[in-house]
Simulated assay, not measured.
Amino acid sequence: MTPLPVVQALRQRSHAALHQLDADEIGALRVDASAPATRPDGQQWSEYSTALTPDDLLNGLKGWWRCDAATVAAGHVLPVTLAGYVVAPLAGVHTWEKDTRSRYAFPRHACPDTSATPTKVVTATTRPDRDLAELLLGSRLPTHSGGAIAYARTRTGRPPGKDA
């Protein structure tokens, strides 16, 4: 059971200020809270847990997903969401790799929020990545589309490719 003060603090969190991003749409990796497990390929997987160190979190979030890789890379960040809240923006997302199953992986580093309370812990080392983490961490991020990778519009009311 989640303590009432934590639920109330989550309810007060604002929506991500996506209009500040330099893309019309971004990808978001939707995860569950889970205990460590082993994937069929033998790799350890832990999805998201406040008990993970930043390095363990990054290793646990490595994966291959079906998605629009160009859209994900164009956003330069892959927010990791748990129940609609950004818990770890993966920064430095600029390129991708494709496997034989037409799934994609993105080299990046994490800026995790590893606390259960609305406290931000930013581990990014560059100013742009720190700014992205501050913009997204702990905010609400409604997404659309099914699957592990979902999408969020950054500029509502404008078709993709149209500047204000």
Rank of each mutant, 00 (worst) to 15 (best):
H144G: 05
G27D: 09
V6E: 08
R108W: 11
A17C: 04
R66P: 00
T100Y: 03
G161A: 10
R155S: 02
A91L: 04
S139A: 12
T143P: 06
A9Y: 05
P159G: 15
P112C: 09
G157N: 03
A91N: 10
T123G: 04
T95A: 11
G60F: 08
R13W: 07
G75F: 06
P36N: 11
V6G: 00
R155G: 00
P142R: 10
D22S: 14
P159Y: 15
G92H: 08
A91S: 11
A69L: 02
V80I: 15
E47W: 02
L137P: 00
Y104C: 01
D163S: 11
K98E: 15
R13A: 09
D56V: 09
D68S: 05
A33K: 13
L29E: 12
L61A: 05
S34M: 08
Q20H: 12
Y104A: 05
L90H: 03
I149K: 03
A35T: 14
T81A: 05
K62R: 15
P54I: 03
A69F: 05
T117A: 14
G84Q: 12
Y104S: 02
C67P: 00
T125C: 03
I149N: 01
G27I: 05
P112F: 11
A23R: 01
T117Q: 13
L21K: 05
D24Y: 12
D129T: 00
G27H: 08
L21Q: 04
R30D: 10
T2M: 11
